[in-house]
Design a protein around this nucleic acid. Structure first.
Length: 483
RNA sequence: UCCUGAAUAGCUCAGCCGGUUAGAGCAUCUGACUGUUAAUCAGAGGGUCGCUGGUUCGAGUCCAGCUUCAGGAGCCA
């Protein structure tokens, strides 16, 4: 029996008149004669030509959209237009039937993304989702390669933690209790001392604090794993379970941190452009067609590929929060009161519309905002000296991407024990619980920095998709944990 | 969680000012054709109009509540 070949390889090969075997799923069966076969190695299909006059009618009937088949025959130059090579089948075997009456995925119907979300177990079989998940795979691999090339250590931080580290974000509780009848203390409260971990625990909202511990010995580490937030967020940019990349680097300041983040983003985008040219061309085309439905002024000036290349070829705009506020104050939409939230004073957080104005209208490229007001940022960020106006800021940086908003959030960390403890007191962060974190500031503390990159937001940007639920295989969001 | 909108055939949608038997395209099935490329041609089957209640002689259509979905906002990555 001839060896099975992947369709991607066959379509790229120049060798013809050789006997090969392909296995895959039928995308369409035209004219009782032409099977468009896909095996997920590429979006393109191999045309398998069936000699229908000499094939059992019962077998022909079983070649239906979605059926898994094996085909063996000669790879020949195609007699028809539209493809270079095709497989002249000598033998067709049905590996798995697919009942056309009940199979929900009929591609000719142009199913909507919303419908495909309901059949997420089958949506991998569409061109769009095939492309998305191959790109997601490449980005994932490129992230590891980027850090590995630079000597970073991939550190596995815990999924179950006892600390709600940043105090930000609702957590999912982890317990082994019988929820109908948990042990109670004398005062009627739930007695966690009898639970599996003998204390309240939750799914991690960030691996950062543990990451810092690693960096204080290994110099440069990164995490890449799932993260959980139990917030009731219903947006196109949030998930209850998402993947995050969190590097942490000893002896880095904020500028080093920004340089690394920018280099990482450019590296992985370049990698996808090189490795997934076909998939991105398809997704670019898909986006262009979607944009045609929009009114002229809402359409993007650049195609997806152009946007990605633009990102590679331009430095991200770096400015401080204070500079951004001044630009926004003087901006046309602010003066004409077009913003829903007008920018008046210093100190409040930027709204989505403000970030969007800076990125999409003013600079028209990725923007890195630094030195945010201390009051609106986490306790562990390094405190700057107050400026001439007495404004207090921290060494934070957020990278804002067009259409996505915040894709990276990071900072130089506060390494000075006294400043850190004072800030924790002010913000009501329990120092006793984080004794291990504070130990790094007691024993050989050094300047260090890190950031978090939302992986799905990156995939969203690179694929040009509009909803984060479409770039993770099985999205978790409020009221939904199907599959 | 808040705001706005939506829910009609397997899918994508139409259904006007409330009116008698609920429409199209695609998909599916049957047949024809056989180098097709979203194949083509002819025919057929397919509906608890999201759920509950209300108004009315009469509700897919109007009203209320609920559910789910989408877009936007907040929180953020």
């Amino acid at each position: 029996m001839s060896q099975r070949k992947k369709i991607k390889a066959l379509l790229e090969s120049t060798e013809t008149n050789v006997e090969i075997t392909v296995k895959g799923w039928v995308r369409s069966f035209r004219n009782n004669q032409f099977i468009a076969l896909n095996d997920g190695s590429t979006n393109n299909t191999l045309q398998v030509v069936v000699d229908f006059e000499n094939t059992d009618a019962a077998l022909l009937k079983r070649i239906t959209t979605g059926a898994a088949i094996s085909a063996t025959g000669l790879l020949v130059e195609s007699m028809g237009k539209g493809q270079r090579v095709e497989l002249k089948a000598k033998e067709i075997e049905i590996l798995g039937d697919c009942d056309p009456e009940s199979y929900p995925l009929q591609l000719k119907n142009r199913p909507s993304l919303e419908f495909l979300r309901e059949i997420a177990h089958l949506r991998f079989r569409t061109n769009t989702f095939g492309a998305i998940f191959r790109v997601r795979n490449s980005l994932s691999f490129a992230i590891h390669q980027f850090f590995q090339e630079r000597g970073f250590v991939y550190l596995h931080t815990p999924i179950i933690t006892a600390s709600d580290a940043e105090g930000a974000g609702e957590t999912f509780h982890v317990t082994n209790f019988d929820l109908a009848n948990p042990p109670k203390t004398d005062t009627g409260e739930i007695d966690f001392s009898e639970d599996f971990f003998a204390r309240p625990t939750n799914l991690t909202v960030s691996g950062q604090l543990e990451g810092e511990l690693g960096a204080m010995a290994l110099s440069d580490i990164y995490t890449f794993g799932p993260t959980f937030r139990a917030e009731n967020s219903n947006t196109t940019r949030h998930l209850a379970e998402f993947w995050m990349i969190e590097p942490e680097m000893a002896f880095y300041d904020l500028n080093d941190n920004m340089d690394l983040a920018e280099a990482l983003l450019k590296y992985v985008i370049k990698y996808a452009l090189d490795k997934n040219a076909d998939d991105l061309a398809f997704l670019s085309q898909r986006l262009a067609e979607e944009e045609k439905q929009k009114p002229q002024q809402d359409r993007s000036e650049m195609s997806l590929i152009e946007k990605l290349e633009f990102c590679l070829n331009n430095d991200f705009e770096r400015l401080t929060y204070t500079e951004a506020i001044n630009i926004l104050k003087e901006s046309t939409p602010n003066k004409k009161k077009k913003f829903q939230y007008l920018v008046e004073g210093w100190g409040t957080d930027l709204q989505s519309e403000h970030e969007r104005y800076l990125v999409e209208k003013h600079f028209k490229k990725p923007v890195i905002l630094t030195d945010y007001p201390k009051a609106i940022k986490a306790f562990y960020m390094r405190q700057n000296e107050p400026d001439a106006n007495g404004n207090e800021t921290v060494r934070a940086m957020d990278i804002l991407f067009p259409g996505i908003g915040e894709i990276v959030g990071g900072s130089q960390r506060e390494e000075r024990l006294d400043r850190l403890e004072k800030r924790m007191d002010e913000m009501g962060i329990p120092k006793e619980e984080l004794w291990w974190y504070l130990d790094t500031r007691r024993f050989g503390a050094c300047p260090h920095a890190g950031f978090g990159l939302g992986f799905e937001r990156l995939v969203l940007f690179v694929t040009g998709m509009g909803n984060i639920r479409d770039v993770i295989p099985f999205p978790r969001f409020p009221k939904n944990a199907e599959f």
